[in-house]
């Protein structure tokens, strides 16, 4: 009986000693808790963008970086060049290895939060993205093309960096809450996006957590897109038919309206 009690006590001590670091990690943040609300954005007929809220907790003293990344896919471009005094397309370029969308929001100045090495390691800025960008054909001026790619994406609003957008709350028992009000661009195409929160401390990424954001077509737009993709002949005929009916219909209405006006005079 005594022996059994001793075994239970030792086992209890071992378990509780193992729990202490876990509890400490939890208070320090461990991996930052993260939630995206809503997690699914429905692109219905009257879709005009969305307002998202990214929330979580980090350990006291940490800074936060939230990054939204679009799926990587090779993109084809025309490259312009001088042909005498004029600018024309002089070749084709394929760019891959980089996210189709890159939105970075931070709780403070990023240069004070992370070292150059950390930014590069987790691909957290333009320089890191440029370094991982694959440009084909390789004979082209790589540096110019990389700069122009980032500039184009930035003009479209698909690459953006905002400092101070992540708000840190009052420290509590569960850590320091953070919140980011994220206006989701109506231009962003339907896809699965990664939303990653980085807990930054002493110039390094201490931990990171990723949540998924799904942007999808629903309702009538989804049905029309499916018809246009899967039943092409029917869709093509419908397009022509609808256009003709609309044109002749408007003419009919306008003709009647015009006659009535004339009769009125």
């Amino acid at each position: 009986m005594r022996r059994r009690t001793w075994i239970l006590m030792v086992a209890g001590l071992l378990i509780s000693s193992a729990m202490v670091p876990l509890a400490v990690a939890s208070v320090q943040g461990g991996s930052p808790g993260l939630s995206v609300t809503p997690a699914v954005v429905d692109m219905g007929a009257l879709y005009g963008g969305a307002s998202l809220k990214v929330e979580g907790t980090v350990a006291p003293g940490a800074q936060v970086l939230v990054v939204v990344r679009g799926p990587e896919a090779a993109e084809a471009f025309n490259k312009k060049g001088r042909f005498g005094p004029v600018w024309v397309n002089v070749g084709h370029v394929s760019i891959s290895g980089v996210p189709s969308l890159f939105l970075r929001y931070s709780s403070g100045p990023v240069k004070d939060m992370l070292t150059r090495e950390s930014l590069s390691q987790d691909q957290l800025d333009d320089a890191a993205i440029k370094a991982q960008m694959l440009v084909e054909p390789k004979a082209m001026d790589q540096e110019t093309i990389r700069d122009n790619y980032l500039s184009l994406k930035s003009q479209q609003g698909f690459y953006k960096e905002v400092e101070g957008a992540v708000k840190l709350g009052t420290p509590g028992p569960g850590g320091v809450p953070f919140v980011l009000d994220l206006p989701w661009s109506r231009k962003a195409p339907p896809a699965l996006y990664d939303v990653t929160a980085y807990e930054c401390r002493d110039g390094l990424v201490a931990t990171k957590t990723t949540a998924r954001l799904e942007v999808r077509e629903t309702g009538l737009p989804e049905k029309i897109a499916a018809l246009a993709k899967n039943r092409v002949y029917l869709y093509g005929m419908l397009c022509v038919l609808i256009a003709m009916v609309a044109g002749f219909g408007i003419d009919f209405i306008m003709a009647r309206f015009g006659k009535r006006n004339l009769a009125g005079h």
Partner: peptide
């Protein structure tokens, strides 16, 4: 448009 320097040397080849 032919003579002015474009804002970006790249343009999407297909859509977007």
């Amino acid at each position: 448009g032919l003579v002015l320097t474009p804002s970006s040397l790249l343009s999407y080849a297909k859509g977007h």
